[in-house]
Every structure is written in structure tokens, then in C-alpha cells.
């Protein structure tokens, strides 16, 4: 997983794609996850880190994470 080079993410959660002009807003956990993808972490790594840090059941975490990464893919924020 790689973050599209044309994507700028601000600390406030504003995501701007300079190649398409699209902008998005992301909540804090979303920013955290995008940051981890940028640091070349895999989905597995991310899941492990989050499950240690947050009060959440495994199925909910797995589903939420894959859902979010799916959204990032369809928004072309993540390229493979």
C-alpha cells in the first residue's frame, strides 16, 4: 500500500488531491491510519498497533479498518 504522491494531508484532517482537485475530511483515527500507510506499514501491522491502543473488539476493528482502506482505495488516495 502506498499513498498517492499527489495527496496532501494536513494535521487537521483535510485531504487534498492536487491531481483531481478533490478534497476530503478525515477524522483523527483516519489521519493516524493514513500516517501509518505512509510509513509503509501493512494492514496487519496497523491492525496490531490499533488493537493495542484502542478499546475495540477484533471483528469491529478488522471490519472498520478494511472498510476504511477500501474507501481510501476507491478515492485513489492509496495506490497499490
Amino acid at each position: 500500500m502506498k499513498i498517492n504522491k499527489k495527496i496532501a494531508v494536513s494535521e487537521s484532517g483535510f485531504v487534498f488531491d492536487s491531481s483531481t482537485g478533490d478534497s476530503f475530511s478525515v477524522n483523527p483515527l483516519g489521519i493516524e491510519i493514513i500516517g501509518m500507510v505512509r510509513d509503509n506499514k501493512t494492514e496487519d501491522d496497523i491492525r496490531k498497533i490499533l488493537s493495542e491502543k484502542y478499546e475495540v473488539s477484533v471483528p469491529v476493528l478488522e471490519k472498520s479498518l478494511s472498510d476504511f482502506i477500501g474507501s481510501l482505495r476507491s478515492a485513489k488516495i492509496i495506490e497499490d
Binding site: 494536513s10 487537521s12 484532517g13 483535510f14 487534498f16 478534497s23 475530511s25
Partner: peptide, 11 residues
């Protein structure tokens, strides 16, 4: 600049 739009939209 887009930063103005960002400020308004997020804050």
C-alpha cells in the same frame, strides 16, 4: 488558496 477553503470547511 485552498487553505482558506480548508479552514472554513474544517473549523
Amino acid at each position: 488558496d485552498i487553505s482558506e477553503f480548508e479552514k472554513l470547511t474544517l473549523n
